[in-house]
Design a protein around this nucleic acid. Structure first.
Lengths: 241, 241
DNA sequence: CGTTTGGTTGAAAGCGATCAAGCGAGGTGG
DNA sequence: CCACCTCGCTTGATCGCTTTCAACCAAACG
């Protein structure tokens, strides 16, 4: 049985309300609404939410959909630095710079809540807990980046891909989706860019993980058969004492 | 002419007051002092300022010396994620976690100002500009990390080492030291860990850069002969249009 | 001094990149 | 509805850079 375009569409539309709360929860948003205009913004697949160099004016909370952020160098080098989904706060990396430092691109039709930044800063003065939340969100971002640096710096291609799948599975679980069965929203090239690998290498690693019986993969559809094995490869397994 | 132990000692003692201000300047510190006890803490080379897992209680402002921060995984993998010098604010990556998320190790005798965190948070409420400064410091940390991710993901070993030297030179210049002549405070292994390379590869890259006439290097003493060439290799050169 | 530690260099191996070909799904236009 | 085209994915063969393994050297230290 193979996956058809229709299957993709059906799976993509399976977007139930998550059972666990996102990082910036509804309570925060309600409080924010009392202090500023929260603008709903929709973007289609392929469109940019913001681009490096554009004036920084707002943070965004991803409400639905899937996006990637891309770092780019003056000489044309470019790398995906993260994938964003519901509950992720984006744009924080550009605070204090005056302009966005990277691109944010929708990989599928998405909806974001735009939080104009000066009002956010003002609201933080009124709501100390919001300030703490924002600071914590920034710190978490640093920790996530550092963990990926560690993974990219110390894991082989195959283990990096395993770590990626494990991370995707965990994030899905956090949002109330199945961590055992999901559709990757990005292509092999974007995965590779994020993992500092070429797309052929990503393909080979996926094939190998399937060969080992840890997953099944058909184009973008992934089933995780052995979570523990993935975790072990990712370096997240139980330590041996 | 080779460098003797005495030369090292002399150079190491050349620590004039910087002519440019560090990221958290004296004005901020004075204001902080009005709100909390700022504790001066000295650490000797090799000592830990904090270790991953210890309870998080303070941020630190590096006042003198040189340190590295190390990320570690449960399975023993480990990587240097950054080098810290005067003016750098460290510990921010651990905010909101309850415990430090990484190790901070002195590479030479250093002095840090300990800023107990709950007081910092309280002071932020009284001093909005301090809050903005802290938030900006966090965002800058994210941007730095992302730029290194880009470099590590897209540059060859030789270019990574060039980028590292260029960065060291720039940071030295920022602190009022010579960007053309400096002593590396870390060994080849730590450089390699940060750059995701083995120490032999770092050595070879340095030898090659010297062979090309861009630098001279004798153990830890580096002279930059061609800054533009380093910048170009680092991907920071002028873009061609 | 002898020992240890960190750095350098060479030779060989291994892993991921590169180059190339082929495949399948989806979309388009006849 | 089908032929064709395109794009993303897969797989194979080869190349080359980085790692690995090993030896050696210089400086620091006791």
């Amino acid at each position: 049985m193979s996956v058809t375009a229709r299957d993709f569409a059906v799976l993509a539309s399976m977007t139930p309300e998550p059972t666990t709360r996102p990082r910036l929860d509804d309570v925060d948003i309600d409080k924010l609404r009392q202090h500023m205009m929260v603008i709903r913004r929709k973007v289609q697949a392929g469109q940019y939410v913001y681009r490096a160099g554009q004036p920084f004016h707002a943070l965004y909370l991803v409400h639905a959909g899937f996006l990637k952020s891309c770092e780019l160098a003056r000489d044309g080098r470019e790398q995906v630095t993260g994938f964003r989904m519901r509950g992720d706060l984006v744009g924080v990396e550009s605070i204090g710079l005056g302009q966005y430092s990277c691109d944010l691109v929708a990989l599928e039709d998405s909806e974001l809540w735009e939080l104009p930044y000066p009002p956010v800063l003002l609201a933080c003065r009124e709501l100390p807990e919001l300030q703490a939340r924002l600071t914590t969100a920034l710190a978490e971002e640093i920790r996530r980046d550092r963990l990926w640096m560690l993974s990219l710096g110390t894991l082989s291609a195959e283990r990096r891909v395993a770590a990626f799948l494990f991370d995707v599975a965990q994030r899905h679980a956090t949002l109330g989706f199945s961590p055992r069965h999901f559709i990757l929203r990005m292509g092999r090239a974007d995965m590779g860019s994020f993992l500092a690998l070429k797309h052929e290498t990503v393909t080979r690693a996926l094939s190998r993980l399937a060969e080992l019986g840890y997953i099944t993969v058909q184009r973008r559809e992934v089933r995780v058969l052995d979570t523990a094995a993935l975790a072990r490869l990712a370096g997240q397994g139980e330590a041996i004492h």
